[in-house]
Nucleic acid binder design. Structure first.
Lengths: 289, 289
DNA sequence: CTGCTGGTGAAGTAAATATTTCAGAATAAA
DNA sequence: TTTATTCTGAAATATTTACTTCACCAGCAG
């Protein structure tokens, strides 16, 4: 079994007696508030320990590094390993596959994306979005682009189960004027726009703003230009090892919004959902199991 | 009481809207593994984010620092405060929300679903599915149910970019005979069927079997009855704290399949994709940024 | 299409950091 | 005291890093 690499701190301790006076002075200064003190420039480190810069270099070489930058890089790596243990890293997701299998690789990145996206989301924005979508006095209009069409459909279908007045806008921008004609101030426009941002989106957002609509935008980490006009923007990380981007995080957000909206409006929507279930049962279109 | 100084991460979040494209790209790169990525030289940071060094300086100035070294010093200070107070265990997904917030609850369950689904997937089944879908001699037919319609559409759109002869079957079962008429032995039928399994799915699967089609089925952990007829079955865990089920894991599988299929057929599909990109460029329908 | 504006990075410059050299200080042994 | 040896930092040099300038190009208003 491979020997675990010693930390720089340990190595410093080990070679203590091979060090000269000035070097020991330096070492003790470094260990004093390890490892932060090693992250500044060689000059700062030398001054802080009250030794000369050549002393720093000589000692670093005794540790086996080629030069100060190499030493510093190692220190950074060490530090990174220390602070990034927030989640137990799954080496493998698909148990039977080697961890180089695309399933494992892909899944790892997606889970990272989830974590990072979530950590950057402002929960009040999320809550406000749910708030707007629960308000039955507002009509909801949903629109997606080439890629996000499917997400828009999915969201539409679920919202439709929860509440009235949900409209799934056609993709063709020529059909938008008809929708816009019907929109009232305070209505909500849900837009999806991810990279290869569509020119038409901006136009639509502007029209909607003129009608005093509230805009909820789902976009990627680089933010569609629509975000300047949107009232609420929710960003997802979408890069994965693939020729195309991932929609997983966005879908997760949509489902979470549906879950919360459904919970908060359960009293008023309970009947609606039950009726729907009955209708499906009656058509014998679905089997129970 | 004095206002607590915001962290650089928070400040970066705050000014997102005032940032330009390249700057956002940089900000996102910095936040990606914050704060370690900010501790190397300006050159390294710029390269890592794939922007130029002037962009780094400009953004750092927008944050109110005089120059990069000042920015870096602040980061170090922040990091020092963090590591000397190791309270920062990541119990939460959405950083600012309490862990009882639905975002955290929901996300936790979804990530569990991902892990469990993946651990139960046979990678050879996954590989075989990719294999079938890469084979340009076979036509592909895709069909989804009420809930899974959006997933089917999403999959269709991506496969269509990769290869020829992909067909998105209408939902109405009355239209299926037309498709079945065109199917040849060896063609592939991709089916989606999750709970509240649809009666019509079984019928379609039987018809397809008669035509000697290969069936790839996406279903839930309890398995649609179609799985008895399917050649390859891929199951996802779908329960979440919501009135409805989650499609996140299924979407993840679809994207992974697309990624692998695209990679394995890249030589032959490269031109197809590039041509497609050109067409989109020519229609000026999308903007570059 | 035309001329603007603002964002961007290549290239050049300034400033620092890192490294080498070397003279002299400190130490130890004769 | 000499003499050899080792250690040290000032100063010179090499290398990187930080910053500035500017031409170019995309996007956009007219």
């Amino acid at each position: 079994m491979a020997k675990v690499q010693k930390t720089i701190a340990e190595r410093l301790q080990d070679i203590q007696n091979e060090l000269t006076r000035a070097e020991r002075q330096l070492a003790s200064s470094l260990l004093a508030n390890y490892p932060m003190s090693g992250l500044s420039s060689i000059t700062a480190v030398a001054e802080h320990a009250e030794v000369s810069t050549p002393t720093v270099i000589r000692m670093v070489r005794k540790l086996g590094f080629e030069g100060y930058p190499q030493f510093q890089a190692e220190l950074r790596k060490e530090l990174e390993a220390t602070i990034t243990t927030p989640i137990t890293r799954h080496e493998k997701w698909a148990g039977n596959a080697p961890d180089t299998h695309i399933l494992n690789e892909f899944t790892g990145v997606v889970v990272d994306n989830i974590q990072q996206s979530l950590s950057q989301i402002d929960p009040t924005v999320f809550d406000q979005a749910c708030q707007l979508l629960s308000d039955q006095k507002r009509s909801i209009y949903i629109t997606g682009g080439r890629i996000t069409r499917a997400l828009a459909d999915y969201f539409f279908m679920h919202l439709q189960m929860i509440r009235k007045h949900v409209h799934n806008m056609e993709s063709r921008s020529s059909s938008w004027p008809h929708y816009i004609l019907d929109m009232n101030a305070g209505d909500v426009l849900v837009m999806f726009d991810v990279r290869r941002y569509e020119n038409s989106s901006i136009k639509l957002a502007e029209l909607a703003k003129n009608q005093k609509l509230k805009i909820i935008l789902f976009t990627d980490q680089w933010r569609s230009p629509v975000s300047k006009l949107a009232d609420l923007t929710l960003c997802s990380r979408i890069s994965v090892p693939s020729a195309w981007d991932s929609s997983v995080v966005t879908l997760l957000l949509l489902e979470a919004i549906v879950a919360k909206t459904q919970k908060s409006t359960w009293d008023s929507t309970k009947n609606r959902v039950e009726e729907l279930e009955n209708l499906f049962d009656q058509t014998k279109f679905f089997r129970k199991f």
